[in-house]
Structures are given as structure tokens and as C-alpha cells.
Design a protein around this nucleic acid. Structure first.
Lengths: 217, 217
DNA sequence: CTACTGACTGACCGGACGGTTAGTCATTCT
DNA sequence: AGAATGACTAACCGTCCGGTCAGTCAGTAG
């Protein structure tokens, strides 16, 4: 905490406002008034609006993504690790909604965001750890040998992100039942991932990329 | 096409610009100059910037989401329908990038978007059709009876959306292999969904929501 | 006391924004 | 011919934005 109190309150106000509506929609006057400080003072502590935003992003990303890396080292089955990972991520996501929103926004607006590179970094780190977890499961024979760990990690991440981003409209969607509650949703996603769509007695279905190529019309 | 040529070109220019950078980051002067029209003329055809945006959204949503509804009626196995659905959606998504981007942005910024309700509508319609497809598979015994069709549809949609939104950074992610190509990605997602993570000979793993509840610390 | 420093402020700047106004011009209706 | 209409424009308006600047004030080192 080498920050002066003023800078601290500016950073906090900015984080809260930026997370709600993004960079463009937040004005410096808003930030200043919420921080209880005059607008010019922001420029005393930060070089520009963009620099402030980047500092906010950096701080939001700092303390993230260590859990998955640590989890890998523990003496558990891969399935058990998966369960704990999902439990942690759904927990953490809502514990720090503003932080999560900030990172997700940058990742999802992948094309143009100012803090994209910062957000991408933690996103990649997280993703790599989860991929390693699935890879371990495959190596141990706990997961099916044809499984692509990258895809599995990506699908899990996508399902989590979509839940967070759309939890408000999820309840308006018919057919989603009680999956609007984080724990219910998490359980169902994990179950679907583990067991897949096909019943045990089903014949195999051949699936390869050629089927998804654009057909000549 | 009862629209005057001027209004048409404004609508087209606006669609292209809004899809790239969103509502706030596009100015009316930009739209006007790209449409080859003076700014005031925009107000001759549209009531306000927001009204123009809503018209753009409405048009983008109009011709969407009929495919899935029609697919349901065809005499095919549910797995086959799933394959065709995914093939179509990955095809269509990139055929109409601007339109897709518009809709996804509104859906993902679920909190605050101006055209959210319009985008939600087509999103829900699409989702319902896919849920029905999975439900049919369960009813027919083609898919596992414990499967939640809502969750399956949601996971599929999430995986597709995440691919579209992050295709640019996907290639920078180690461990994703050739899944940066749409068809490869699609095939791997479908395979993972169909077969799940666990090998056929695996013991069942109990998964329920209680495991994902926040534990007291 | 003086000199200096860093936190902080009110007043201001140029520019871009969304939106308005008065008016031009070609076409069509009577 | 003349009235009316709809497409279109140049010039303009008030507002708010990000950013600047001159200066106040408390603390503190010499």
C-alpha cells in the first residue's frame, strides 16, 4: 500500500464504474465525484484516462489464476480435481463480480479492447492450467484417450463465462429449469461433460472435420 | 424495399460500423460520411441515433433462426440433426460476420445494451429450437436419459459463441492445436459433447449441486 | 523564518458529440 | 403555372468530454 489515499479511492471508484459499463461509457467526472476528489486530481495520480483503466485492469488481474496451478499438484483423481476447480471458479466468480466482469469484457471484446493484452494473459494462464488438468486425466487413463484437452478446457470455460454473462436472462429462458442457480448449473455442466450425450450402449458415431466444411451449393 | 436509397445506405453503413465497435464508439458523422450523405439527413430518416441502432438490430435479427426450427421436422436421427445444426451455424456465423457480431455483442453485454431485448428474442428462439432437438434425442433414447436438454443446448451455444468471439486469440493459445479452424473446432466440440470425458469402462461418478455450494470457511 | 514538496482544486480549453434549423432542389399533384 | 411534398444539405447550437494550468495548502527539512 504505497498508494496515497486519494489514488486508492480513485482506483476503487474507477474499478467499480468501469466494470459496470466499460471504458467509453464512464466519464472522468463520474469517477472523480464517486472518489470524492476533483477531476484534475485524477491527472495528478494517473497520466490519462487510458492509463487509469490499465492500472485498474492490472490490479484486477493480479491475484487471479493461482488456484488452478496449485490444484494440479495435489494428490487427487483428475475427476476430483475437476470438481474442485469448478466449485472454486463458480465461487470466486461471484465473490468478485466486478473484477470478473472487467476481465470477461476485455476477453470477449477480443478485437478492440484497451486492456485486452492484460486480460488475455490471465485468461491464457487459467486456460493452460485447466488444459494440463485434462491432459493429466487422459494420461492416467481416467479420461477417454481420444479427448482433446484443449477443447475440453475451452468448453468448460465457455460454459462458465456464458453463465456469468447471461445469468440475468437465463431465468427468462424456458427449459433451463433450476439451472439458474450457480451450483445447479455447475453440477449439470460437469455431469454433461463427464458423461456426454450418448448412452453407454450406443453405437459409436463417426465425427470428423470434413463434415463441417462448407458444402458447395 | 420501400426504403429510399438514402435510408438504405445509411442503414448499411450503420450496420457495418456498429458491428465493428459498438454503439458508443460510432459517431453519426462517421455513418453519414460512409453512407455518402450529410449527417442531418440521418435525422430525416431516423428519429435518433438510438432509433437507427434499433432499426439496424431489428434488420440483423429478422432472417435468423428459422433453420433450427425447420431441421427439427426432418426425418433424421437426433445425432444427425445435431451434426447438421452445428455445420449450419458455423457456416452461417462466418457468412454474416457483421450480423453475428451485432447480436452477440448485445447478448453478451446482457446488462445494459440498447438492443438487448431484440437480440434476446432471436437468441431465445434459437435456443428453444436446439433444446427441442436434444429433448427429442432423449425421448427417442438416442441420448442418455439423465441428460438435461437445456444445459446441453446452452453448452453448445456457449462453445460456438466463444469460438466466434475469440477466434483471433485462439491461435495464440498453446494446446489448442488445429482447433483454430472452424470445422476442426466444430468436430472436436461435437465429439466431446457426444462422448463426454469418461471412457466407456469408467465407474460412474456422483455429481450433484451440493458439491458446488459455497463451503463455510 | 524560508524553501521546497506533493496532494489537491477551480476555472478553463479545444474539440467532438448528438441534435436542430432554415433553406435548396427536383418531382408530382391540381 | 403554382402549390405541395419528400430528399437532402450547410451551418449552427448547447453540452459534455478528456485534458491543462495556475495556484492553494499542509507538512517538513534546513
Amino acid at each position: 500500500m504505497s498508494l496515497p489515499a486519494g489514488a486508492r479511492s480513485i482506483l476503487d471508484a474507477a474499478a467499480s464504474l468501469f466494470s459496470r459499463t466499460g471504458f467509453d461509457a464512464v466519464s472522468l467526472s463520474e469517477i472523480a465525484s464517486r472518489a470524492g476528489v476533483c477531476k484534475a486530481n485524477i491527472f495528478h495520480h494517473f497520466d490519462s484516462k487510458e492509463a487509469l483503466y490499465l492500472d485498474v485492469m492490472r490490479e484486477a488481474c493480479k491475484c487471479h489464476a493461482e488456484f488452478a496451478e496449485q490444484l494440479l499438484l495435489e494428490p487427487l483423481s483428475s475427476t476430483e480435481k475437476l470438481l474442485r476447480l469448478v466449485e472454486f471458479e463458480f465461487h470466486d466468480m461471484f465473490e468478485n463480480e466486478a473484477r470478473t466482469q472487467l476481465i470477461f469484457r476485455e476477453v470477449l471484446n477480443a478485437g478492440s479492447g484497451k486492456g485486452r493484452e492484460i486480460a488475455e494473459n490471465i485468461f491464457q494462464r487459467n486456460c493452460n492450467a485447466v488444459i494440463a488438468l485434462f491432459q493429466e486425466g487422459v494420461d492416467r487413463g481416467e479420461f477417454r484417450s481420444e479427448l482433446d484437452p484443449g477443447i475440453a478446457a475451452w468448453m468448460l470455460g465457455a460454459s462458465e463465462m456464458m453463465f456469468f454473462q447471461n445469468r440475468n436472462i437465463l431465468s427468462h429462458m424456458p427449459g433451463m429449469g433450476n439451472a439458474t442457480v450457480p451450483a445447479e448449473y455447475a453440477a449439470k455442466v460437469v455431469k454433461t461433460l463427464l458423461y456426454g450425450l450418448l448412452p453407454d450402449n450406443a453405437d459409436g458415431v463417426a465425427v470428423d472435420a470434413a463434415q463441417f466444411q462448407r458444402k458447395p451449393t
